[in-house]
Write a protein that binds this DNA or RNA. Structure first.
Ligand SMILES: [Zn+2]
Ligand SMILES: [Zn+2]
Lengths: 325, 325
DNA sequence: CAGGCATGCCTG
DNA sequence: CAGGCATGCCTG
C-alpha cells in the first residue's frame, strides 16, 4: 500500500486511526493516501520559472507519476489550493518527509551526518532546522522539532490568501539532502506529505503527497524513469516474458550495449551497426508509407499506466549497523 | 612530486626541512618519499591469510604499484623490517594517512561525518580514535590526537622484536573510511606514511609509504588499475596519439562498448561479434604457428612502466563548501 | 562472487 | 549540458 501513493482513490472522509492532533510530528505511521478533505486540498508543483535562453529548467515535475526531480538546495515552488471561498485564516500547511517503502515508513527522515554539519555553507544561519531535509522559504515557517532521533521533522507555514485573481497559494521548499545520502535517506524513495491543518487545533483537514527524487541530474533521471515506464516493445522470441517484472537484463528502454574486447572488434561492430541501421531505416521508410497503422509506441498505452504501480528499480540501500541499545 | 611515491630513488639521508620532532602529527607538509634511513626501514603488505576454499582473499596488494586495495574495517597485515641486529627497543612506527595529490597534501585526513558517529557499531568502544581513518591492532597503540580539525591524526605502535627466526615485525591496520567517503576522503587518493621513529625523542629515522584504496570491490578495482597500466595496443589510424595522456574515450585496456538502440540491433551485433571472433581465432591459430614473434603484449614494456608515473584516473571529488571563517 | 545497474561527478 | 566513467551495491 505504501508504495502506491496514488493507487487508492481520494477518500471523502478521513480514514480512521490517523488523526493528527498537534502536528504530524511523531513517530506513528502517517497516512500517505491523498485525502482532499472538506476544503478540497490540492498540491502541485509549479513549472520552473523561465530560465535563460538555452538552459534547462532547474527541476522536473512529472505529473503522470506525481514525482519531482530536483537537485539539493534548489527552491521548488509548490502550489496549494483549497475550495474557493474557504476561510484560510485558520489554516496551515505542514510538509513532512517520509519513506514510502513499507519497511521504512516508520523511520523518521533526517538529514545525513555530512549535511547537518554546522560548518557547511548551506547551514549558515540554520538553527533548529539544521537536520531537517525540507526547508520552507517563508518568514513564518515553523520547524517542528525532533528532539530525539526518533521524532519526525516537519515544517509548517500559515496558509495565506492567494493574490487576487489567483487560486494558488505558492510556497517554495528546498530539499537539503540527496536521495542517496549515506547515513540519511540512503537511496530510499522519498515522499513529501503535505497536510492541511487547523492552525488552532492542529487537526488534519486534508492531505496530499508528492514523491521527490533529490539528485544531481534531474533531467536524466526523469527521462530514465519515463523510458522505463514505456510500454514493453516486442521482443525477439528468446526474450523473457513481457509479463515478468522489469529485470536488470538489457531491456529496450534502458541503455543497451554490446561489450567488445579491443578496438578491432569495436570498429568492426560500429561499421556493421551503421550499415544495419541504414538498411533498417530504408525498410522503415518503405513500411511507413504502406503500413502506417503500426506505430512503435501507441500513445494510449502510456496513459493507461498512469495510476498503476510504478515501482522504482529495486531498492539499493544498506543501512548502517548501529549498536543495539 | 607528491603523486609519485616511488619515482625518486630512496635517499640515503633525510632531506632537509622535514624533520619530525615529536610525531608527524602537525599540519606541516610531511615528506612522502621513501627513505629507509640508517636502519634500512622497509614496509610491505603480507599476503592475505589463507581463506576458505573458493573464496577470494580479503584484500589485494599490488607490489608493482605499491598499492593496497581493501574494504573498510578489514584487518590488513603490514610487515616492517629493519636491518638485522638493530636494537628495536627504542623504536616505534607511526602510521599517518595523507593525500598524495599536490593540492591536498596539506589537508589532514579525517574520518567522514557519517563514519565518526558514536552510534555506529564499528565505533563501539572507540574513544579518541573515533575520527581516525587508520586503526592499529595493537594493545599499546597510541592515537595521536587532532584536537582541532587542522591537526593530523596518526597511530603509533612500538617496534617489537620479530619472533625468533623471522625478520618482519607484523602489525595489522584497519582503514575506517572508504576512499569515496563524502565529507571525508571524498574520492581523493590516499597514502599511508609509515615513519620509523625514536621512541624517546620522536626523531624520524626512516620512512616508507603505501597507497591505499579503500573500496567495496578490491579485486575488481585492482584489476581495473592493472589493465589500465597495460602497454598501449596498436590502434586504428584514426586513434589519438598513444603518447597522449589516457583519455576517457574507449581504450583497449578499459571497458569497450558499442551502444545500440534496441534488441534487434543488440541481437544482430551479438551474432556478428560471435562469428567475427571465431574468424579471428582461426586467424590467430594459423598465425601463432607461423609467426610467433609478434606477441600482443610484450612483457618488457610492462616492467618498463614500473617506476614511472601512473596517475589514477582524473580526480573525481568536490569538496564541500564550508563557511569562510 | 560475477554481472550489471544507479548515480555523483568529471570532461569535452 | 551531453557523454561517459567510477564505484557502491543489488541480483542471480
Ligand atoms: Zn545529506
Ligand atoms: Zn567514511
Amino acid at each position: 500500500m505504501y508504495v502506491l501513493p496514488h493507487a487508492p482513490p481520494p477518500q471523502p472522509v478521513q480514514p480512521a486511526g490517523d488523526r493528527f492532533v498537534e502536528s504530524a510530528v511523531n513517530n506513528t505511521l502517517p497516512a500517505l493516501e491523498p485525502w482532499p478533505g472538506l476544503h478540497r486540498f490540492r498540491v502541485s508543483v509549479r513549472t520552473p520559472p523561465p530560465v535563460q535562453h538555452g538552459r534547462q529548467p532547474p527541476y522536473v515535475f512529472d505529473r503522470e507519476t506525481n514525482k519531482l526531480y530536483v537537485d539539493m538546495i534548489i527552491a521548488v515552488t509548490f502550489a496549494f489550493r483549497v475550495a474557493e471561498g474557504t476561510d484560510t485564516t485558520r489554516l496551515r500547511v505542514s510538509a513532512l518527509p517520509v519513506y514510502p517503502d513499507m519497511h521504512h515508513v516508520n523511520t523518521p527522515v533526517r538529514r545525513c551526518p555530512t549535511h547537518r554539519l554546522p560548518e557547511l555553507e548551506c547551514n549558515n544561519g540554520a538553527g533548529s532546522f539544521i537536520d531537517h531535509v525540507i526547508r520552507a522559504e517563508h518568514d513564518d515557517a515553523v520547524y517542528q522539532e525532533g528532539g530525539t532521533t526518533k521524532e519526525r521533522r516537519s515544517v509548517v507555514v500559515p496558509y495565506e490568501r492567494p493574490p487576487p485573481g489567483t487560486l494558488d497559494y505558492l510556497v517554495s521548499y528546498r530539499f537539503c539532502c540527496m536521495n542517496t545520502c549515506v547515513g540519511g535517506i540512503n537511496r530510499r524513495r522519498l515522499m513529501v506529505l503535505f497536510t492541511l491543518e487547523d492552525s488552532s487545533t492542529g487537526e488534519a483537514l486534508g492531505r496530499q503527497s508528492v514523491e521527490v527524487k533529490v539528485c544531481k541530474c534531474p533531467h536524466r533521471d526523469a527521462r530514465t524513469d519515463r523510458s522505463r515506464a514505456l510500454p514493453k516493445q516486442r521482443r525477439p522470441a528468446s526474450s523473457p516474458d513481457p509479463q515478468e517484472p522489469p529485470s536488470r537484463r538489457p531491456c529496450p528502454a534502458g541503455r543497451l550495449v554490446v561489450e567488445v574486447d579491443d578496438m578491432i572488434e569495436y570498429d568492426h561492430l560500429k561499421a556493421v551497426l551503421a550499415s544495419f541501421r541504414a538498411a533498417r531505416r530504408g525498410l522503415l521508410r518503405a513500411r511507413s508509407t504502406s503500413d502506417s497503422a503500426t506505430p512503435a509506441l501507441p500513445a494510449s498505452v502510456s496513459s493507461d499506466t498512469t495510476s498503476s504501480e510504478r515501482d522504482s528499480p529495486a531498492e539499493r540501500r544498506t543501512l548502517f549497523k548501529t549498536e543495539a541499545p
